[in-house]
Design a protein around this nucleic acid. Structure first.
Lengths: 160, 160
DNA sequence: GACCTCATACTCGGATAGGGGCTGTCCGAGTGTTTATGG
DNA sequence: CCATAAACACTCGGACAGCCCCTATCCGAGTATGAGGTC
């Protein structure tokens, strides 16, 4: 069970977009920030756009910007946008083929194994939903007060 | 991010092994219980054996049995045995290539994004480690008191 | 000088190949059982 | 009848293909820009 690395890129890119404020930033510049493949990062940003986390603008002076305030974007929003909303543990309802298995029972809700796994996954989601992009941004700024300025500088430079 | 379905099979099989008590059960019988591919389930049981969760015996009258008491087997143990212990979110330390990135800093520990993701994953692990196989077994028996007898009956039958 | 038109360059967006890991299967090494045989 | 030994049948264990999703890339549709020409 491994998370796609696009999640990491998306989170850091969202953070940079938060520092860029309302300035639209191109995928190329965001990719150059961490030396990432521009086309592939673009793909992740598209997923964020479909989820309504970022807004995109085409043409010259176009790019991506946050569609909502950082306080209204949770880490769970970003993870779900990139990885999809389906649960990591998907109950295949194998108990239906076991002794005493009923076809009219939804074991995704009644199987106690499935319940236990879902409970753990819920704790994971709850923790992700409890932290917003603004929380991360503020924590970073507290440790590195000049991070916003450095980010804006880098994003202002032409992307090579 | 999706968990392998072998985890579900392993959990249910461990539960059946708990009801079989100290009787060795072959992979074929465990597979027949839920109509699963025997060879593939065997593969998962081998992983459990390598992790020390079950003990295996070759030859006639051989099979698998729990290596520890159900109270000493957590859901996390089973998940780690099948899926591996590496974290779902693996920090690639992309900040090293960003502005102000240092090569001598381990961003897996210092990057705040990575910390937030690890915190969520820790909550998930904690929840999984809090429930043992005995907890699940007892919960099932409470709802279906004849589950152990039915399981033992099915496991006693020759696997077709 | 102001306005309109057109060519331009730049951006996102979706469609298109390549690779790694999960899924599924097979056969061989090892072992306890059973059976036949000889004392 | 009992001991012995060999043949056997059954099990785990690891090695071998197939498929799907993530990774990576490319090119086209759309658009704001800027230049050039005209009034």
């Amino acid at each position: 069970m491994q998370m796609g690395e696009g999640v990491e890129w998306a989170l850091h890119s969202c953070l940079n977009l938060a520092w860029a404020e309302h300035q639209a930033v191109t995928a190329r510049k965001l990719a150059a920030f961490y030396d990432l493949p521009p086309a592939y990062l673009n793909r992740q940003l598209q997923a964020l756009a479909r989820a309504g986390i970022v807004a995109s603008t085409s043409g010259p002076r176009g790019g991506f910007r946050l569609a909502r305030a950082p306080e209204e974007i949770t880490l769970l929003d970003v993870v779900v946008a990139i990885e999809g909303g389906r649960e990591a543990f998907r109950c295949q309802q194998i108990m239906r083929d076991g002794p005493g298995g009923r076809s009219d029972v939804d074991y995704r809700r009644h199987c106690l194994v499935s319940q236990a796994m879902s409970r753990a996954e819920l704790a994971w989601r709850r923790e992700l939903a409890a932290q917003t992009l603004a929380d991360i941004r503020d924590s970073v700024e507290e440790k590195h007060p000049d991070a916003p300025r450095m980010a804006r500088n880098r994003l202002a430079q032409p992307a090579r």
